[in-house]
Amino acid sequence: MTGPSWREGHGDLISVCFCAEVGAVRAALIAVDASLQEKGIDRDLRDRAQIALAEACNNIVEHAYPVGDTIKAMIGLDIADDRGGLQITLRDRGLPMPDGQLPGIAWPAIDPDDPLTLPEGGFGWPLLHGMAQALCLSRQSGQNILRFHLPRIATHRQ
């Protein structure tokens, strides 16, 4: 597995690209966390960045590149400082989101009294919506561009 490659880009904190594959995403997120720590970003904001980035990247791996063409399937990530928070941009050249829309923000229903019926999925998008502000998706020149802001102080949507 090749690691993430650092590049010149639009993020004044981080510009990196990596394969759209779960192992490469894991390696990239670990490297990004270490880099943000070096740059003085506190633990709480870094944790929120890890959660939001994992959900966004895993979605790209699963849905934008379903055929598993991992040689060409890449994810570009830029992170810039924004009023003490983070402005994040993710780019991929995979399939567009169906209808060009972001999936819903509703949490899956759970019944604490009946653990055997608990859902095992459906938490990814609500988690990303819960972390991020100004989440928006666009499609330009064959690229999906997902942008969001993580505020310096958490404002979680429960």
């Binding site: 997120l29 944790d47 890890q50 959660i51 994992a54 959900e55 895993n58 653990p115 055997l116 608990l118 859902p119 095992e120 999925g121 938490f123 990814g124 988690l127």
Partner: peptide, 24 residues
């Protein structure tokens, strides 16, 4: 130190594997 929604799904699956008579 990190769990994503896939990891959460794995914890839920683990809970279900134990069945009704055991607690996780």
């Amino acid at each position: 130190d990190f769990l994503d929604s896939s990891g959460l799904g794995a914890l839920v699956a683990a809970r279900k594997l134990l069945g009704a008579g055991r607690v996780l």
